[in-house]
């Protein structure tokens, strides 16, 4: 919303602190290139993993000759593979995200920038996706510190547009992204179709999902008065309300119930759910809450 805030998604001081962090996956995932993370695959690191019987075609370099000498049988030494990490950040840029001070979208961009920076610095494959009703834009996987500026440019170019359709966007995302990895979903989850189906897509691909729900202060503590015709900015849906204490109370109850339902859904499926308000300093979110949740270390 505010351009000055756009200019500085991340401050240099904050970047310095982020450099000390690294992304952590709760799952051992497979990557595509060699990296410095243990992979599910056996590979060529220095870390011994297991033995397996030699079959024709195995690389003779990994035969355990000592064992062959002792047992007269051929065993192949398996080592832990170290691979890079697939790190996808999904940013909701539907117009509903363009609310609040700072806007939810800006907040999402800041969180995305911070996490992407951590990923890039740690040589993870960082992909960025922008979605509203579908995947609107994507930044093909980047690696390395030198890609930071591209990532930043990409983020800064994101403008709010379109109505949200979380379900369709997620479906297309999982079709597009090949590998499994960490997926950070930055959205407000205000989708009338519900949150269950889109999350199911992600879970089905066994991705390590972090669902970060960003709501503006106006949504958490609405300060409305009088008789209003509320117009949904995305689909022009109209809700006529007469604001009263009771209605506000009920709204808050509904919001709490919605959050609780989302939380429970995520917990059951191993999704890490983080709720944040745009009023919460995003660096605190990154440095404290996501650290507690184990996304960064």
């Amino acid at each position: 919303m505010s351009n000055t805030a756009e200019e500085s998604l991340l401050s240099p001081e904050f970047l310095a602190r982020l450099e000390q962090l690294e992304l952590v996956s709760r799952k051992i995932l497979t990557g595509r290139f060699k990296g410095d993370r243990l992979s599910k695959r056996k590979g060529t690191s220095v870390e011994f993993a297991d033995y397996k019987n030699y079959v024709v075609g195995d690389d003779l370099r990994f035969l355990d000759w000592n064992l062959f000498a002792r047992l007269d049988r051929l065993f192949i030494k398996l080592f832990q593979e170290e691979e890079d990490l697939h790190f996808s950040i999904l940013i909701d840029n539907s117009v509903s995200m363009d609310f609040g001070t700072p806007s939810k979208l800006h907040y999402a961009k800041q969180v995305a920038a911070a996490l992407a920076f951590v990923g890039l610095v740690n040589l993870d494959r960082v992909a960025l996706y922008v979605f509203n009703s579908d995947i609107a834009a994507e930044l093909s996987p980047l690696r390395g510190r030198r890609s930071v500026w591209r990532m930043m440019n990409f983020l800064q170019d994101i403008k709010p547009a379109g109505a949200g359709n979380l379900s369709k966007a997620m479906k297309n995302f999982v079709l597009k992204s090949s590998g499994r990895g960490i997926v950070v979903l930055l959205t407000d989850f205000m989708d009338k179709a519900g949150f269950e189906e889109p999350l199911r897509y992600l879970v089905a691909r066994q991705m390590d999902v972090y669902a970060i729900q960003i709501l503006s202060q106006e949504e958490i503590e609405p300060e409305l008065n009088g008789d209003l015709r509320l117009i949904d900015i995305e689909d022009n849906d109209v809700a006529e309300v007469t604001v009263s204490a009771a209605l506000i109370r009920r709204y808050k109850q509904n919001l709490a119930a919605f959050r609780a339902a989302l939380q429970e859904y995520c917990n059951r499926r191993g999704i890490c759910y983080v709720f944040t308000s745009t009023q919460q300093p995003f660096d605190q979110l990154v440095l404290t809450y996501l650290r507690q949740r184990g996304l960064v270390r």
């Binding site: 407000d188 205000m190 989708d191 503006s216 009088g226 117009i231 949904d232 900015i233 709204y251 919605f258």
Partner: peptide, 23 residues
């Protein structure tokens, strides 16, 4: 019918739910 003030909100999702049983 009350003449209501129009106001844009990010989503009427929760409002709809809230006024469902009041409406």
């Amino acid at each position: 019918k009350l003449k209501r003030r129009a106001m844009h909100v990010p989503s009427t999702f929760l409002w709809k739910k809230s006024i469902e049983d009041l409406h």
